[in-house]
Amino acid sequence: MDETGKELVLALYDYQEKSPREVTMKKGDILTLLNSTNKDWWKVEVKITVNGKTYERQGAVPAAYVKKL
């Protein structure tokens, strides 16, 4: 869990989004888990830093590609 009490997951593999509802992640990324009720796809929040600014993006990733921490 992070400092706000939200559950975290670890990306076990790289994943490139294939639709606007998904998010890209790299192996080793730590993501915030938002919903894991679907056994195949979990909704997560990814933090992306671009030019020193951090953005948050929500989307789905394959459940088999992440592990709860």
Rank of each mutant, 00 (worst) to 15 (best):
M1Y: 12
M1D: 13
D2V: 14
D2Q: 13
T4R: 14
G5M: 12
K6I: 11
K6C: 15
K6W: 08
L8D: 03
V9A: 09
V9D: 02
A11Q: 00
A11F: 03
A11I: 05
L12Y: 03
Y13G: 04
D14G: 05
Y15R: 00
Y15G: 02
Q16A: 12
Q16K: 11
E17V: 05
E17W: 05
E17H: 08
E17M: 11
K18E: 07
K18C: 10
K18D: 05
P20T: 09
R21H: 14
V23G: 01
V23N: 02
V23K: 01
T24R: 05
M25Q: 01
M25F: 11
M25T: 02
K26C: 11
K27C: 07
G28P: 01
D29E: 08
D29R: 02
D29L: 04
D29C: 08
I30W: 04
I30L: 07
I30Q: 02
L31K: 01
T32D: 03
T32R: 13
L34P: 00
L34M: 06
L34T: 04
L34D: 01
L34C: 07
N35W: 04
N35Q: 10
S36P: 05
S36A: 11
T37A: 12
N38W: 05
N38M: 07
N38T: 06
K39R: 10
K39I: 09
D40L: 12
W41I: 03
W41E: 02
W41C: 06
W42H: 01
K43V: 15
K43L: 15
K43P: 02
V44R: 00
V44Y: 02
V44M: 00
E45K: 10
V46H: 07
V46P: 00
K47W: 08
K47R: 12
K47Q: 12
I48N: 06
I48W: 12
T49S: 10
T49W: 09
T49C: 15
V50Y: 08
G52H: 05
G52I: 03
K53W: 08
T54C: 14
Y55E: 10
E56L: 15
E56M: 15
R57H: 07
R57W: 07
R57M: 07
Q58P: 03
Q58M: 08
G59C: 06
G59S: 01
A60M: 15
A60P: 01
V61Q: 00
V61S: 00
V61M: 02
A63C: 08
A63F: 02
A64S: 14
A64Y: 09
A64N: 12
V66S: 00
K67W: 07
K68G: 06
K68P: 08
K68R: 12
L69R: 01
